[in-house]
């Protein structure tokens, strides 16, 4: 039986705070109770959490900079610095 107080809709709305550990004790208990009786919401939680976690792979990723672009960047900086030179 699903918890009468907490519906799947409420459960999904609370996922961000749930994962951040920001729920008050009562809401946390209600949500855990809902999870224990609602496999679809457990699956939803897993996939929501996984979606958030895999996104971290895009952190500090190096992306190829073509040689011509690197040259444009160098020229730009040289120009800017020489223009600012006479202090």
């Amino acid at each position: 039986m699903k918890n009468d107080l907490m519906k799947c809709r409420d459960c999904v709305d609370l996922l961000l705070d749930y994962l951040d550990g920001n729920l008050d004790e009562k809401t946390q208990v209600d949500l855990d109770e809902h999870f224990s009786a609602c496999p679809p919401c457990v699956n939803f939680l897993e996939t929501y959490k996984s979606s958030s976690e895999v996104t971290t792979v895009l952190r500090d990723q190096e992306v190829e900079v073509p040689a011509a672009m690197e040259e444009r960047l160098r020229s730009f900086l040289r120009e800017q610095l020489s223009a600012a030179e006479p202090k």
Binding site: P40, S50, V54, V57
Partner: peptide, 25 residues
Amino acid sequence: LPQFSRDGELQYPVFGWSVDPEEVI
């Protein structure tokens, strides 16, 4: 956005999956 029934329950079966960041790389 997930679809809910009138009484607030998920309307379709939710299949579980989990992907490791290493797998994505």
